[in-house]
Design a protein around this nucleic acid. Structure first.
Lengths: 231, 231
DNA sequence: ACAAAAGTGTTCCCCTTACACCCATGT
DNA sequence: ACATGGGTGTAAGGGGAACACTTTTGT
């Protein structure tokens, strides 16, 4: 169910005693061997900005429902793994129209899922170095950085990387994800030893014949993201 | 500066399209050898509840200023270490008067600081087991649990425990804090070896003569809480 | 003298890291 | 046959965990 865009014209009222709550989403995916963020263009407030997909939180729905609604309306993407990041309000004039507090989330999307659902008329995909050169709305670049750090941290004690991999994958693909996110090379033998000793993935019995020498295909044992002492 | 209690009568309006933002604080301290939480009594909404100190966030101040104001008005405590925990909105009817989203913080107070500032006509101090038997407002017991888990986690890679200790302390006092928070015994020699090897505390040259055999007094080298790979 | 807490080293084991060669296939 | 990525074991070193006795003071 897609929540329709709400009318929030009542809130741009200087007399209102409470702040407006916004929700911003850092969508992360691995694309062409790099960790990327999804951004939207906005021409609000005169200048053109790049921004994280976001919107005003409506009172009539839960945070989760608001999240799903904003994500789908702004990007076309549905059904992703998400996690709350932080609630920001450093600058009282974060949004020139009002006092806005922003709850931020990050979301992980596997690239196949991403490409099949996303509406590229609405969004752009950029690497982190590219993003840092753009004119990002307020603190959105920092929020994205914060998401990257959280993802990095979670690699060490959860099976979160499953959200970025296809259902069945080669162990080398998994290692590649780790290397991209951690931004350093890992030793092939030590990586495999570790992953196998934890027992989070299992051999499907199938082979990927797209490489030179056929490679075993694995899948995650647990459907859900959970704490597992990965590295 | 203490922000005066704000008039929020305008927000209990069924037509308002945005949620109300509240701020709840889990104040943790170590008292009589146990990790304790500060709670307040509230008789709002007919029944008597115990609740975390909290209040409505005012638009005219930053989150930090709102935090300080709520903390001081509800408990009398000022100048504590604080950290944002999470922003909750699981249940759409969390607060019967409206749709309320709660940003939660936890705060650490050394017991001396606490006792000198707190107003016991306004608050109670309870251990976690005691709290779990009380009729806590909505999800406040879970929020407090969440704070405890975060604190436990931070012990391992920050010098956060400094916020609970006096300026100068015996190494055995420091170990006791760790044991209380982690809820298990630690080996004395291994603990000291570890703490000294990290180099986060230094000998003051003074002695504590209140114990039988006088003990060296230490202090933290860094004034601020920071990441240091503690345990 | 006795009680109470402070102070102090060594050993063992496991986990992490570093490291190099052969294998199965496609071209 | 050659190029490409897949697959595999071992040795050395460092860090964590276990463990007990002596010292200094107060009473």
């Amino acid at each position: 169910m897609l929540i329709p865009e709400q009318d929030h014209s009542d809130i741009w009222n200087d007399q209102l005693s409470i702040p407006v709550l916004a929700l911003d989403i850092v969508i992360l995916t691995i694309y062409k061997g790099e960790l990327c963020v999804i951004i939207v263009k906005t021409t609000e407030w005169k200048h053109q900005w790049f921004a994280l997909p976001g919107g005003i939180v409506s009172r009539w729905y839960t945070l989760e429902e608001n999240f799903d609604s904003i994500l789908e309306r702004k990007t076309g993407i549905t059904g992703v793994y998400k996690e709350q990041l932080y609630t920001f309000w450093d600058k009282i004039d974060r949004d020139p129209r009002s006092h806005v507090i922003a709850v931020s989330y990050y979301a992980l999307v596997g690239i196949d899922n991403f490409l099949s659902k996303v509406d590229f008329t609405k969004v752009d995909i950029v690497t982190f170095p590219q993003m840092q050169k753009l004119r990002m709305f307020y603190d959105h670049a920092e929020i994205a950085e914060y998401a990257r750090i959280r993802l990095k941290g979670k690699l060490w004690y959860t099976n979160i990387v499953k959200e970025l991999l296809p259902k069945k994958f080669r162990i080398s693909q998994m290692q590649e994800m780790y290397e991209i996110i951690l931004d350093r090379k890992l030793d092939k033998r030590n990586f495999q030893k570790k992953i196998f000793s934890i027992g989070v993935i299992k051999d499907t019995g199938e082979k990927d014949r797209s490489t030179n020498r056929p490679a075993k295909l694995y899948q995650f044992i647990n459907k859900r993201v959970r704490v597992v002492d990965m590295l």
